[in-house]
Amino acid sequence: MSGAGATVQVDRVSKWFSGVVAVSDVSLVVQPGVTALLGPNGAGKTTLLRAIGGLTRPSQGTVRVFGEDVRANPRIYRRIGYMPEHESVYDFLTGRQLVELAARLQGVEDVRGAAQRAVETVGLVDAQDRKLRGYSRGMRQRMRLAATLVHDPPLLVLDEPLSGTDPAQRLRLRDVIVGLGREGRTILLSSHILEEVDELADSIHLMVSGKLAASGDYRAIRLQLNDRPFLVRIDCSDPRALGAGLLALEAVESVEVAGDGGLRVKSRNVTSLQRSLPTVARELDVRLSRVEPLDDSLESVFGYLATGTGA
């Protein structure tokens, strides 16, 4: 991936703690927009985010943010908003007081004005004067996000920002994050929830066991997995006849008749399969009712990368 115009450049970064390797030789770039760091718990996401935020020094390799070394660089810190995963707020404060406190700590000149803008951005104006102890988990996350962006940073680093939120709050947070990305900011967030990443991110970096497994959007990542066949579901009027016909195609690796009568076809060249399928069906007088790629989802991609299994 090109580093031209990149907000974040991670070059061969490793981090270990007492002999335990948390991140191993990771290189990636993060451009403006929303980028997701995806992986299961223990994949090294938080450690890498902390290195990008300047909170920990890599054991090996370099991290550059806006072209500068991020560690011990207060000038760069002012341009980063970092929101850790674990909730840590003074619940005796009101939401607005929390945001104003963050503004003062960041040296913002117009504390009240900046706090008001940040609270409006996350849509909590009506709740800003209530104590945080009375907030739902989703409301706390949104107000924490307001505190993270109160100093108007061009880079936001968000560790599991949607964790623990209910569906309605998740949608609100998602809309806020996507909106911030469309403003031209760089949003780097982590998640282990696949559908969140699919909906949120322009680009994805997949981490497994401390290593970077793949980068791109999820369909591009799936295309990188040349050693794994695609799985396609086909519903038709005569599954056995069509299955026998498809086995003659070079693009088809295997055909299975599912319990409900549909076909599950494995192919290493789905484009060729899609072109040949109508011809084969017509020659066999078989009517097609559905053709659906079962692997064309982030969940399936992650299953391949993390465990070597798919749909």
Rank of each mutant, 00 (worst) to 15 (best):
S136R: 02
G138P: 00
G138Y: 00
R140K: 15
R140G: 03
R142V: 00
M143C: 03
R144C: 10
L145N: 12
A147L: 02
A147M: 06
T148K: 07
L149M: 12
V150H: 10
V150K: 01
V150L: 03
H151G: 03
H151R: 04
D152W: 09
D152K: 07
D152E: 08
P153C: 02
P154F: 05
L155S: 10
L155E: 09
L155Q: 09
L156E: 03
L156Q: 11
V157L: 14
L158M: 09
E160A: 05
E160V: 07
P161W: 12
L162R: 04
D166C: 05
P167Q: 09
P167H: 11
A168G: 01
A168P: 03
Q169S: 15
Q169M: 14
Q169H: 08
R170N: 08
R172D: 06
R172I: 04
R172K: 09
R174A: 03
I177H: 01
I177C: 02
V178R: 15
L180G: 06
G181A: 13
E183K: 12
G184I: 12
G184K: 05
R185W: 04
R185H: 10
R185I: 13
I187A: 08
L189N: 07
L189F: 13
S190Y: 15
H192A: 05
I193L: 12
L194Y: 01
E196V: 11
D198K: 13
D198M: 02
E199P: 04
L200Y: 13
A201K: 09
S203I: 08
S203L: 14
I204H: 08
H205Q: 10
L206I: 15
M207V: 10
M207E: 04
S209M: 03
G210A: 07
K211L: 00
K211N: 11
L212E: 08
A213Y: 00
A213D: 06
A213W: 05
A214D: 08
A214G: 07
A214P: 01
G216D: 01
G216Y: 07
D217S: 02
D217E: 15
Y218T: 06
R219P: 02
R219M: 07
A220P: 03
I221R: 04
I221S: 00
L223Y: 11
L225G: 14
N226H: 15
N226Q: 14
N226G: 12
N226D: 14
D227S: 15
D227P: 08
D227A: 14
R228C: 00
F230K: 10
F230G: 15
F230L: 13
V232M: 12
R233W: 04
R233D: 14
I234Q: 05
I234A: 09
I234S: 03
C236A: 02
S237E: 09
D238Y: 04
P239R: 02
A244Y: 01
A244H: 07
A248G: 14
A248Y: 06
E250Q: 07
E250D: 11
E253N: 08
V255E: 07
V255A: 05
E256S: 10
V257I: 13
A258T: 13
A258R: 10
G259Y: 08
G262P: 06
G262A: 15
R264L: 15
V265F: 01
S267T: 15
R268K: 01
R268L: 08
V270L: 13
T271S: 12
L273E: 00
R275Y: 12
S276G: 01
S276P: 02
